[in-house]
């Protein structure tokens, strides 16, 4: 059985073909730890935002005893503007931290398995992920422009879910299910608008961490990463 037989050679060739097909069409270096790190960034961000929002509404309740004052009304408006810009700044910081940390873990995994991080497959993944994300980004900016905050969390979740489903054709298929969960969560949260931040935290924080751990367990545990 140790001699190269036509069967062994055929099997090897077929395995080669399969590997090449997979390698040329899917970006397989995506690391589970990227999901975990993005989720942790989201949790920290949500915790900070929660504190600010509680502080803001707490402030209103305290001043609630004097509703007729014009000056106070103007003051509250300024404060709302301030909170708005603070939250936007926080959102950008969280996004940047999540992107940087997740890119780092994926880069590390690609390097360990001697695969390029920027090749034909990661380009495809990137572009296909970006299409729904950019559309969603403009959608959210439009809401902020119209001073309509209520639907920001559901919109983020739904567009992000669609981006994942779209991108799943070009990387590990498992992110398709994460995408479905994000979409469902986003749709449900449309009906519980006051819980927006909690839904956002579950979708971007908790789900990312759970998904990341499962992926790590499934693909990387044995590889010593």
């Amino acid at each position: 059985m140790d001699h190269p037989s036509p069967t062994n050679e055929s099997l090897e060739t077929l395995q080669d073909i399969r590997r090449m097909m997979e390698r040329s069409s899917r970006f397989i270096s995506l690391s589970g730890l990227s999901g975990v790190s993005a989720g942790i960034c989201a949790l920290i961000g949500a915790y900070i935002a929660h504190g600010w929002i509680i502080g803001y509404y707490g402030g209103i309740t305290v001043r609630g005893g004097d509703p007729g004052s014009v000056g106070r009304h103007g003051y509250m408006h300024d404060e709302a503007e301030g909170l708005k810009w603070k939250l936007i700044g926080l959102a950008i910081a969280v996004l940047a931290a999540a992107l940087l940390s997740s890119t780092f873990f994926t880069w590390r995994r690609a390097r360990k398995s001697n695969l390029p991080i920027w090749d034909v497959t990661s380009k495809k993944l990137f572009i296909n992920m970006l299409i729904p994300l950019i559309a969603g980004g403009f959608f959210v900016l439009g809401m902020l422009y119209h001073a309509d905050w209520d639907y920001v969390a559901p919109t983020c979740l739904v567009f992000y879910g669609l981006a994942l489903v779209n991108a799943s054709k070009y990387t590990l298929t498992d992110i398709r299910y994460l995408g479905f969960l994000e979409i469902i969560l986003g749709c449900v949260s449309m009906y519980y608008l006051h819980w927006g931040l909690y839904f956002w935290t579950i979708g971007f924080g908790v789900l990312h961490i759970i998904y990341g751990l499962i992926m790590w367990w499934k693909y990387e545990r044995g590889a010593g990463v």
Partner: peptide, 25 residues
């Protein structure tokens, strides 16, 4: 093996550049 590799890649990628082929193989 190289020609098999090229064909496998082209079976599922409509069009691919020389450099991408070089990198993949």
């Amino acid at each position: 093996r190289i020609r098999v590799g090229v064909m496998s890649i082209l079976m599922i990628n409509q069009e691919i550049s020389f450099n991408d082929l070089k990198q993949l193989l």
